[in-house]
Design a protein around this nucleic acid. Structure first.
Lengths: 203, 203
DNA sequence: CACGCGGTCTACCACTTGGTAGAGAGACAG
DNA sequence: CTGTCTCTCTACCAAGTGGTAGACCGCGTG
């Protein structure tokens, strides 16, 4: 059990991820991050030379997780003819594994759309093209609706997943404030899966 | 032509809306807003006693627009049996009319989920319940899929619309950087409409 | 022992932030 | 003319920002 192995740099990055996700980049001071880790501000700046460097590290870390998970996502998609549904499941799982991911991503998208453009092209487009090709195959064998716009459809599914999981509180309030958050969220995600599936497949 | 009637308070609110939407609340200084209007910071603080008061005014302004537009949205939905599609159109139109609306809303949702909860309950739920009732009717007459979760479905459509329109840049980059932004966006919104429609209606 | 080296600290810097004090300008009423 | 009311300004404030300088401390190596 390596209970004491995490170096400061890692702890800082994790704390920064959490705070950037919850309060935004501009809403988070280096002081606040340092306090969370239990170190002083200069110590933080020793590990990351500037606040922007820290932001870059946090974002790179997020994309690294994404890239590491893409293969198994693709595998899930290819493993069966009607298993495109698994795509949604894997997507949801990824952003649910750490809810800060959806928040952080959405925030960066709003804060620096121009900068995120390249990141998105690098990290999302290849995956998008591959899965879109599978959809085209599904069309050819008559399994999938003819009028689906593959890339556009996929982007909508991703967008909806991120938006939904970065706003679980809203969901609860809008849907059924009287019931428990967990059951409401489960129901809402089930409808998301149904939504994505019904718009894709033929009867 | 009342070319010179807009009082300072209105101009300030409009400028603040634009800047809050584009750079976020924490990323926007009162100085920046004042400069945009062409006044000094104390003058701004004369009209709005604090930055938070300004934020509240901006948000209230947004919801006022929303409430004003809800009736015609409902009308569009009721006017024909198969015209639920119009719902998506009106929704898109609302957020496209002023793109800052989607941005602002998404930002507030991320920044202050707890505070937005009441706002959402007040402004969205009534509308949600009414339209959900129409969907239930559609189910009874066999027009709409049995497995649709009405409220959840509607919330997904709203979420997807806001998320999509607050990230038009991403869409362009992910989908087809080589084509013109306008045509790509039009195509993407067409798929959104198809998406929402296909997941709702029976064949 | 002496030395360098990675990592941490206190003290400090210039600058920006949201917000205040108080004076002045113009319009209008008596 | 005098007063008052609305609106605007310059000057200022305390607090917090990202970032730097430099001392210190414990470690392993010569």
């Amino acid at each position: 059990m390596d209970t004491e192995r995490a170096p400061s740099a890692t702890l800082i990055c994790e704390a920064a991820t959490r705070l950037f996700a919850r309060q935004g980049f501009d809403g988070t001071s280096l002081q606040a991050i340092a306090a969370q880790v239990g170190i002083s501000k200069p110590t933080l700046l020793y590990h990351y030379p500037s606040k922007d460097a820290l932001r870059a590290a946090v974002l790179e870390n997020l994309f690294a997780h994404w890239r590491r998970m893409v293969p198994q996502l693709l595998e899930a998609v290819t493993s069966g003819h009607a298993r495109f549904e698994a795509l949604t499941n894997e997507l949801i799982r990824f952003f649910r594994e750490d809810p800060d991911r959806a928040l952080l991503l959405m925030r960066e998208l709003l804060d620096r759309p121009a900068h995120m453009r390249e990141q998105v092209i690098d990290n999302l487009r290849p995956w998008l093209r591959v899965v879109a090709e599978y959809i085209r195959t599904g069309k050819r064998i008559g399994q999938i609706r003819e009028d689906v716009d593959e890339e556009s459809y996929l982007l909508h599914v991703v967008t909806l997943t991120i938006a939904t999981l970065s706003n679980t509180g809203l969901v609860h309030a809008a849907l059924a404030p009287e019931r428990t958050p967990e059951s409401v969220e489960e129901r809402h995600l089930a409808e998301l899966r149904r939504f994505a599936k019904a718009a894709l497949f033929r009867e």
